[in-house]
Amino acid sequence: MTTRSGLSALQEALRALERSGRAARRSCGLPDSRSEAAREVGKDGQGGRLDARRISSWLDPEQGRAPRDADQVWALVRVWARWAGDRTQRRVYWNKLVEDAQPIKGEPAARSAGSPWLGRVVGTLRDEDALGLEVHPAIEGGTGPLPPYLPRPHDQALRDELRAADEHGGLVVLVGGSSFGKTRACWEAVRELLPDWRLWHPLTPTRSEALIAALADERLGPRTVVWLNDAWQYLGIDAGGERAASAMHARLQRRVDAPVLILGSM
């Protein structure tokens, strides 16, 4: 079995189990993010140090890296299987998947030419990357690039919309007053719920022109979030805004490369 096909088989098996586990958790109103799964792995004490970013690096469809530690994979499988009420999983099966996913000697573990798709995988983004998405930074003297986040009632409604978008895509716009925390709320929700999606932030030469170009670009692949902070700057009353709105409508009608999520704030 070749490296990429072996890794694809492992990714497909993990994604299927993740979908089942997360769906069961959501139906019970319990947290279902990859961060929560990693936390439970740590609590179980059998998978070493595991975090959501590492899980996402395993599952990246374009540049995924094969996990080297079968114990970590098995610990994650046990958590997702427990969530799903699935008692059929066997360690020998997962050990073989991990073994077959390993790079062949002399062959790169991931493609070196870069991804053919626009954007970066959400699960690989760090707090520093949020600043490039126009999330307000921490005040001077803070302990990190972002201030601590305090969830508010609208966060649950936003997450409900993103869970639906995970299957169908669509348009979601969070509306609120200036400095209300809209961009940060979107960042936290996307990072928690859509870690294996890509995120693309169209900016130049103008925002409306960048959006029009992105929506027409064949590199805007399925499972991509198009990030429109201050959406009025993309959809203003000028001709560019009208064309951008028309391009959004046309792209959302397409089903061949769905789902695509257009996520805005204003």
Rank of each mutant, 00 (worst) to 15 (best):
Arg4Trp: 05
Ser5Pro: 06
Leu7Ser: 00
Gln11Arg: 14
Gln11Glu: 07
Glu12Asn: 14
Ala13Trp: 02
Ala16Arg: 15
Arg19Ile: 01
Arg25Leu: 12
Arg25Ala: 15
Pro31Ile: 14
Pro31Met: 08
Glu36Leu: 05
Asp44Ser: 15
Arg49His: 08
Arg54Tyr: 07
Trp58Gly: 03
Ala66Phe: 02
Pro67Asp: 12
Asp69Lys: 14
Ala75His: 07
Val79Tyr: 05
Val79Gly: 11
Arg82Leu: 09
Arg87Glu: 11
Arg87His: 15
Val92Glu: 14
Val92Ile: 13
Asn95Phe: 10
Ala101Thr: 04
Gln102Arg: 11
Glu107Arg: 10
Ser112His: 07
Ser115His: 03
Pro116Cys: 13
Pro116Gln: 12
Trp117Gly: 00
Gly119Pro: 01
Val121Cys: 12
Leu125Thr: 02
Glu128Tyr: 11
Leu133Val: 07
Val135Gly: 14
Pro137Arg: 11
Ala138Tyr: 03
Glu140Gly: 13
Pro153Met: 08
Pro153Gln: 08
Ala157Met: 11
Ala157Gly: 14
Asp160Gln: 15
Arg163Leu: 12
Gly169Leu: 06
Gly170Asp: 06
Val173Ile: 11
Leu174Trp: 00
Ser178Asp: 04
Gly181Lys: 08
Thr183Asp: 12
Trp187Glu: 04
Asp196Gln: 05
Arg198Ala: 10
Leu199Tyr: 09
His201Leu: 03
Leu203Asp: 12
Pro205Lys: 08
Ser208Asn: 13
Leu211His: 02
Ala214Gly: 08
Leu220Val: 09
Gly221Asn: 13
Trp232Asn: 01
Gly236Ser: 07
Gly240His: 04
Gly241Ser: 05
Ala244Ile: 01
Met248Phe: 04
Met248Gln: 02
Gln253His: 11
Arg254Gln: 14
Arg254Thr: 09
Arg255Gln: 15
Val256Arg: 14
Asp257Gln: 07
Asp257Tyr: 05
Met266His: 11
